[in-house]
Structure formats: structure tokens, C-alpha cells
């Protein structure tokens, strides 16, 4: 994942509360390999009729270049499926601005370079009102925690850890590898003090494939 600190693009409004992960990507698409691209699955059942026809009045269908989504509370609530984030990212979305996000969705977003920007409800109300007239130019600045949409300036909240991660595009596994010795020390302590936390090692002497007894 590559980092970013500024983005210039196009904002659209998705005037809905509680857009959950099952709406972001219906479960039936999730056996697809990522390499095939998930953008077409984004909000599939809201964007397309049951005949597969794109619904003309759905915002994203008119603005395929959209990269900033402004939406209402509890966005991304529900499941841990990272595919919900893949669908947004593969469509081209870089930032979502909303009053609140599902916790797991938000951390998945940051792990994929997608900004979950929290703004207060009144600000989001006015942005959605503004965007009702159509998409607008958007500028997002992670360092300053600010976005500018059609001339309206918005301050957003973002955890400091997440800000750093989005800017640096860090791979957590690489970071963690530097702490191998500390992890190894911890493991030894845990195996010593709470041996029951390691059932495979406990069973290694007898049977590793315990059968149910209850």
C-alpha cells in the first residue's frame, strides 16, 4: 500500500444512514479473487436493478470519477469483511466523510489507504445539502486534518496512529518484524506462566487430535 497526504478529486453525496457492509458488498460476490477487481460490486444492489441495469438516479452511477464520498452516520457498520473496503477502493474512492463509522470497517479502511474521516453531523448535513446540486471538486489534506469541498472547508477527526499510517503507507507486518525479540520473550513468559494457553504443545505428548469428550 502506498501512502498519501493530499488528494484532489471529486466528491459526491450518499444521503443514507447506516450504509452497512452487506450493502457495500453483498455476500454473494465475496468468493471472487481480488485480482478481478471489486469496484463493480460496490453498493451493487442499490446501484443496479434486479435486471442488472444501472439505476440512473443513483449518485455513483452518474459520477464514475467520484473519489470522496460524503455520507451519514454509522457508515460501514456490520461485518469485518474487508471486501467492503476493496469495493470502495477499487471503484476509486479515497476518502469517506461521515459522522461515524463501524469500528472494524474503519481499521480495515486505513489498512487499505482509504481515509475514514469523521466530521460532526451539522457539517455533514450542510455538505450533503451542498452536494445535492451535483458533484463538486474536493481537496483532502491529511496533515492538516482538513477537506475542502466546493469551497466549503471541513475539519475532520482522525486518530493520530491512523493518520501516520495513511501518510506513510506502512506495512504493519514489516513494522512488527522489528519487534521479534520482544515477541519471543513474551511468548516464553506466557508459555511458562499460563501453559494452558498452548493446547497443541500440551497435547503433543499424547494425542494432538483430541476427540470430543463432552
Amino acid at each position: 500500500m502506498s501512502g498519501w497526504s493530499r488528494h484532489n478529486g471529486t466528491a459526491v453525496a450518499l444521503d443514507l444512514e447506516s450504509v452497512d457492509t452487506d450493502q457495500l458488498i453483498p455476500a454473494r460476490f465475496m468468493s471472487t479473487p481480488r485480482s478481478e477487481g471489486y469496484g463493480g460490486f460496490l453498493l451493487h444492489d442499490l446501484r443496479f436493478g434486479s435486471d442488472g441495469e444501472a439505476l440512473a438516479d443513483f449518485p455513483l452511477n452518474n459520477t464514475p470519477e467520484a473519489s470522496v464520498l460524503v455520507t451519514r452516520r454509522n457508515f460501514g457498520s456490520g461485518s469485518s469483511r474487508e471486501a467492503a473496503v476493496y469495493a470502495l477502493v477499487d471503484f476509486g474512492i479515497r476518502a469517506v466523510i461521515a459522522p461515524s463509522f463501524g469500528d472494524i470497517f474503519a481499521s480495515n479502511a486505513v489498512n487499505n489507504g482509504l481515509l475514514p474521516a469523521r466530521a460532526d453531523t451539522a457539517t455533514v448535513d450542510s455538505l450533503i445539502g451542498y452536494l445535492a446540486g451535483g458533484p463538486a471538486k474536493a481537496h483532502v489534506d491529511l496533515d492538516r486534518g482538513m477537506a475542502e469541498i466546493g469551497g466549503v472547508r471541513v475539519r475532520f477527526d482522525l486518530d493520530a496512529v491512523w493518520r501516520e499510517k495513511l501518510i506513510n503507507g506502512w506495512d504493519d507486518i514489516d513494522l512488527t518484524e522489528q519487534h521479534r525479540p520482544a515477541i519471543s520473550d513474551y511468548r516464553n513468559w506466557r508459555a511458562e506462566s499460563q501453559p494452558w494457553a498452548f493446547p497443541a504443545e500440551r497435547a503433543a505428548g499424547s494425542s494432538t487430535d483430541a476427540q470430543p469428550s463432552k
Binding site: 469485518s80 469483511r81 472494524i104 481499521s107 489498512n111 504493519d172 507486518i173 512488527t176 518484524e177
Partner: peptide
């Protein structure tokens, strides 16, 4: 607690997870 795929890969690789 539930985690996403990037975090699952991290746990597979390191048996640890970053959390606030």
C-alpha cells in the same frame, strides 16, 4: 474481537495484533 483480512494476515505472520 473481529478483524479484517489485513489484520488476519498480520496475525498469521506474527501471532500479534496492533490495537489501540
Amino acid at each position: 474481537f473481529g478483524i479484517g483480512a489485513t489484520e488476519v494476515a498480520h496475525v498469521l505472520a506474527t501471532q500479534t495484533i496492533w490495537q489501540k
